[in-house]
């Protein structure tokens, strides 16, 4: 059995037997391992949970954080909801678009970085919030964008 299978069995123990509660954590584990949820990854999750692939796929497709297509090694997610928007989120998003040469929802041609616009991340008093590989950077301005990307490209593993 794969390492993922074992990890999922560990997670299942947190929940009452016979429930499907481990689906979300299991999908998360699969995505952390493979970067995105391919058909094969979802089948592996389904097998480990004794569920059908179609069921796991239907759950995965509901949630914004699950990637059903390949994404870059890193993700840059810019909040463009109202609170950040009032204080320049659009300009921050455009600075990332320009630096990366991709539109929101796209990945750089070298497969390194996926840029996404996302809904409110809950950091409204320090706009603009940008999640770099899911870790929040607060008070980001367009001027910060080149440095953030340089750090990501140099430091990211």
């Amino acid at each position: 059995m794969s390492a993922l299978y074992d990890e999922i069995q560990e997670v299942r123990k947190r929940y009452p037997p016979g429930t499907r509660s481990a689906v979300l954590p299991a999908l998360r584990l699969a995505q952390e391992r493979y970067g995105w949820l391919s058909r094969e990854a979802i089948e592996e999750v389904a097998d480990a949970l004794e569920l059908t692939p179609a069921y796991c796929f239907s759950v995965a497709s509901f949630y914004d954080m699950f990637h059903l297509e390949p994404v870059g090694r890193h993700t840059v997610e810019v909040c463009t909801n109202v609170c950040c928007g009032l204080l320049g989120a659009q300009q921050v998003l455009e600075a990332f678009e320009q630096e990366l040469g991709v539109a929101p929802g796209e990945t750089t041609p070298d497969g390194e970085i996926t840029l996404r616009a996302v809904e409110c991340l809950g950091g409204c008093s320090t706009p603009t919030i940008v999640a770099i590989d899911h870790r929040y950077r607060q008070s980001v301005t367009p001027a910060d964008v080149p440095t953030i990307l340089e750090e990501l490209r140099n430091g990211g593993d």
Binding site: T80, G85, L86, G88, A89, Q90, P104, G105, R116, V118
Partner: peptide, 11 residues
């Protein structure tokens, strides 16, 4: 300030 503010749904 909200001019052409991109929304994720547009992705």
């Amino acid at each position: 300030t909200l001019d052409h503010l991109f929304a994720p749904v547009d992705q």
